[in-house]
Design a protein around this nucleic acid. Structure first.
Lengths: 340, 340
DNA sequence: CTGAAAGCGCTAACAT
DNA sequence: ATGTTAGCGCTTTCAG
C-alpha cells in the first residue's frame, strides 16, 4: 500500500514547532513570525508534505470538485459528442476556479450509492428529473445540485427549447411538401410507446407532433422508429425503413448521431440527398457541419449549457443557500445540405 | 451551507445502539444479531443516513476514484477527440469496477497542487514523463500512477509506436515520389525548434525524419510548420503554406485535427485531393473516416490505451505494490482518400 | 506569536 | 453479540 504519508506533526517535529503552527503556516500565515514560517516551509518542502485532502474535507466539508451524474455508463458518456461538448462547457468554469470534474459510474441503476460515496461538493444531473426517486437523497441531504435536461423546482435547472426546435424542423419538411416522414426516436428499455414520450426525447417528439397536427396530418405512432443513439443505430434504422413497402421521403432524428447514420447508409444505397431523402437531425454536434453532405439539424447550445450549469452550481456552493433559477435556452433550425 | 449531515451516532441514538453497532451493520453485518440489524437499517433509512466518504477515506485511505492528469485545461481536453476516445477506454474499466473518473485542471502549471488535493486513489498521467519535476511528489509519496504517452521506469507506462507509424506515413509519400513535403508539428510554448523534438510530437518527427534519410533526402527543419492542434490550426497553416513560393505536393500532420483543417482549406482553395495535395494525419479519430474525402492517417489504438492504463492502475491499487510494466502498442498506416 | 486540546465522522482493536 | 475507546490528519477556539 501507499507509503506512510507525511503528516502535519512530522513537519512540526522537524521544524521544532507544534502541529498547530504548521497548520497556521499554510492557512493563516499572517499569524506566525517570519522566522518560524520559513522554518516550517523549509521542513515541509524537504519532507514533501501536503495536507491530506480527506482530513481537510472532513473538517471543511468541501473537497474542490464537482460531480457529473448521467444515467449511463462512463464509457458511453465519453463516446457521445453531446457530452464532450457539455463537459467542455463545464470545464471552462472548472478551469477558472481550479476545481476538478468527477464523472461517475452508475452501478446497476444505483444512483443513490454513487451519490453517497462521491467526493464532490455538488452535482450536475443530466437527464434526470428532480422527482426521480433516486434523486431524493440529494434533496433530503440538501446537497447543492443543478439539473440539466430535466425538470425541477428546488434545484436550478438548465434546459433548451427542445419542443420548439423539433417543431421547426418538422414544419420545415412539411412546408416543403413532405408527407412520408419517419421519425427516429431514442430507444427505450421496455415498452417503447410507454416511455418514448418522456424526457428530452419526448419533448422533441411533441414538437414534431404539433407540426404534424398543424399541417392537418394524422399523427401515427407507427411513424416512430426506435433507434439506438449512435451512427450504427441510424444505419440500422435506415435499413429497416428501406425494407418497408412505403418508403419515406424524409427522416427526422432526435439525435445527430442517428441522422448521420441514416445519411451514410442512404449514400451507400445510392440515394441522392436531399432529392431522394431529406434528413434533419438534432443537437448540431461538430461532425454535423464537417461531414458531407453537411447535416441539417436543430442546434442547441450544448457547451453553453455545460458552462451555465457549472456556473450555477459553483455560485450555489460559494454563496451558500441560493435561490433556484430556471433557464430555457433557445434552439435554432440550421439548414445545410441534407434538406432542400 | 449544507444542512447538518446525519451522522452515525444519530442513527445509533435512534436505533438505541452504539455507533459501533451501526458501523458493523454496514461493514460486517454478520457480527450483529438479526434483530438489531433490522432496527439499525430501519433507523438509517428513515434518517436518510449515508456514511461520510471523507471520514471513511481518512481511515481507509481509499476513496474510489481515479484521477486523469493532462497538462492542459479541462475544457481543451473535452474538445479533443483523442481524449474522448482515451477516456472512453478508461471508462470501460471504471464502469466495471464502479469507480469514478476525476478529470483535473492544472492551475498555472501547478501540477503539484492539483495532485495534492485530488480525492483519488491513483493517477493516470498523459503526456508527462516520470522525470518531470512536477511528477516528483507522486514518486516521493508513492502514489499509484500509470504514465501514458511518456517515459518512466518506476511507474507502468503505456505508449504506442509513434515513431514507426510516422515512418510508415512518410515512407509511403516518399515512395510515391513526393519530394515537396511539409510537416505540421505541435506548436510549442517557446522556441519551437528547441521543444519540438520532445514528447510524442518528437517521436513522430523522428519517424518522418528517418524515412527522409533513408530516401536520401536532406532533412530540413524548415519543412516544419508549428501548428495549433485543431482544425482551425490546420487551416491557418495551409494558408501559410499556400503563400510560400514553393508549394508542397504533400503534407504530413502530427495530428488528425490539423490534417483535417488542411483538407478543408485545400478544398476551399479548389485544390484536388489527393492529386494536387496528398495529406496524412495521425491518430485516426472517428472523424477521419467520416469526412470526405476520408482522411489517410496513422491509426493508434486510443481507446485500448485508456482501457489498459486504467486496468494497470486498478490492478496496482488492488494488489498493493505492483511491478511496473511497460507497453508499446502498434500503430498502423491507414490509406483512405487523401492519398493516392 | 505559539501551543494544548477538542472534535470533524468513521473504523477496528479490545474489552465486556 | 454489543459497547468502549483510541485514533485517522487536520483545523480552530482558547489560553499562555
Amino acid at each position: 500500500m501507499t507509503k506512510q504519508r507525511i503528516t502535519i506533526s512530522d513537519v512540526a517535529k522537524k521544524a521544532g514547532v507544534s502541529p498547530t503552527a504548521v497548520s497556521f503556516a499554510f492557512n493563516k500565515p499572517e499569524q506566525l513570525g517570519k522566522e518560524t514560517l520559513e522554518r516550517i516551509f523549509e521542513a515541509a518542502r524537504e519532507l514533501g508534505y501536503a495536507a491530506n485532502p480527506y482530513a481537510r474535507a472532513l473538517h471543511s466539508g468541501s473537497i474542490g470538485s464537482l460531480g457529473v451524474l448521467v444515467p449511463q455508463s462512463i464509457s458511453s458518456i465519453f463516446s457521445n459528442p453531446f457530452f464532450a461538448a457539455f463537459l467542455q462547457g463545464m470545464g471552462v468554469m472548472c478551469d477558472e476556479k481550479g476545481i476538478g470534474l468527477l464523472t461517475l459510474a452508475v452501478q446497476d441503476n444505483n444512483l443513490e450509492a454513487a451519490i453517497a460515496k462521491a467526493p464532490v461538493d455538488g452535482f450536475v444531473l443530466v437527464g434526470l428529473n428532480e422527482d426521480h426517486e433516486e434523486v431524493a437523497p440529494l434533496i433530503k441531504r440538501n446537497i447543492p445540485t443543478v439539473i440539466v435536461d430535466g425538470d425541477g423546482s428546488q434545484f436550478s435547472t438548465v434546459n433548451v427549447d427542445d419542443e420548439g426546435g423539433a417543431y421547426q424542423a418538422a414544419k420545415y419538411l412539411l412546408d416543403q411538401g413532405h408527407r412520408d416522414i419517419r421519425i427516429l426516436t431514442f430507444e427505450t428499455p421496455y415498452n417503447h410507446l410507454e416511455y418514448v414520450y418522456f424526457g428530452v426525447g419526448g419533448r422533441r417528439l411533441r414538437g414534431y407532433q404539433r407540426a404534424f397536427q398543424e399541417a392537418g396530418l394524422d399523427w401515427n405512432d407507427e411513424y416512430l422508429v426506435p433507434t439506438i443513439a449512435s451512427i450504427e443505430g441510424g444505419q440500422d434504422s435506415f435499413m429497416q425503413l428501406m425494407a418497408q413497402k412505403r418508403q419515406p421521403s424524409a427522416v427526422l432524428a432526435v439525435s445527430d448521431a442517428m441522422a448521420i447514420g441514416v445519411v451514410l447508409a442512404a449514400k451507400q444505397a445510392n440515394l441522392r440527398i436531399p432529392q431522394d431523402l431529406a434528413v434533419i437531425g438534432f443537437d448540431d454536434i461538430p461532425l454535423a457541419e464537417l461531414m458531407s453532405p453537411a447535416l441539417s439539424t436543430v442546434n442547441q447550445p450544448v457547451t453553453e449549457k455545460g458552462r451555465l450549469a457549472a456556473d450555477l452550481l459553483i455560485s450555489a456552493l460559494e454563496e451558500g443557500q441560493h435561490k433556484a433559477q430556471h433557464f430555457m435556452l433557445p434552439t435554432t433550425l440550421i439548414l445545410r445540405d441534407t434538406t432542400r
